[in-house]
Amino acid sequence: MKKRWPLILIGILIILLGFAYVTRDQSKQGESITAVGSTALQPLVEAAGEEYSKVNPGIFVNVQGGGSGTGLSQIQSGAVSIGNSDLFASEQTGIDEKKLTDNRVAVIGITPILNKKAGIKNLTTKQLQAIFTGKVTNWQQVGGRNQKIVIVNRTQGSGTRVTFEKRGLNKARSIASQEQDSSGTTRQIVATTPGAISYVSFSYINDTISVPTLNGIKPTNKNVTTNKWQIWSYEHLYTQKNTDKVTKRFIKYVLSSHVQDELVPQLGYIPIKDMQVERLE
């Protein structure tokens, strides 16, 4: 019996390798598309991918998170077919935008959110800037209750944070504060911490938090389409310049009226064709 164990071990190894071979990623045959990156865009690409597989049997869309930075660096190195990003490639350091093709598939609005006890209904851009740069530390100073301000940021380099700082804070940088790497956790912390302020995309708005108007403007999809509400960003599917046909077809599908009219609004995004303005950076 003792002599058999190497044989058994080798047998297991062969079975494992065989299993790996049978279930190997067959992307080289052009039947699978891998999309990696932004977690904000992930639900849309996943839903679109599932529907696409139903219409085109045999083609599988594999969607992974990892963050906009990961998406852009993976597409730049050619490791994946699509890089999902909340940011323009030019906004991310270390990415050469000339090597990539930008496909904007949706728009997402971002809004500041407050804990309900702050007692604030409206904020101006100046006040928002003062809060996030640490010049104002109590809600009383901007017309709220006597409550210390607790800033909750998203992780440095996250698409939501970059957009919020660029559009909401007029390119000012937030002071160092606590950071969370998911929108869900951020919302939960703001809901339960008195005096907390943060920012999330529109799809995360619910009753547990209060949403102030900014300069008197309500954060609605309609205001985003007219650019009255300025804190919004495109959702990009970046591809390499000369990508394969399968990927091109999938992106065409995401831009088709079926996905744009049904899936996109259903999942809380704004269809690209509704936009009355265009941004180039």
């Binding site: 963050g67 930075g69 990961t70 660096s73 730049q76 270390g94 996250s158 160092a176 969370q180």
Partner: peptide
Amino acid sequence: NAALMPTSLVAPASTLTSVLTTGIGNTV
């Protein structure tokens, strides 16, 4: 996960590992 010098035990702080795990996905 606040990259600040800890001033009190109950204020947000960060560790080497927490900054690594939250930051690595957003860099190139």
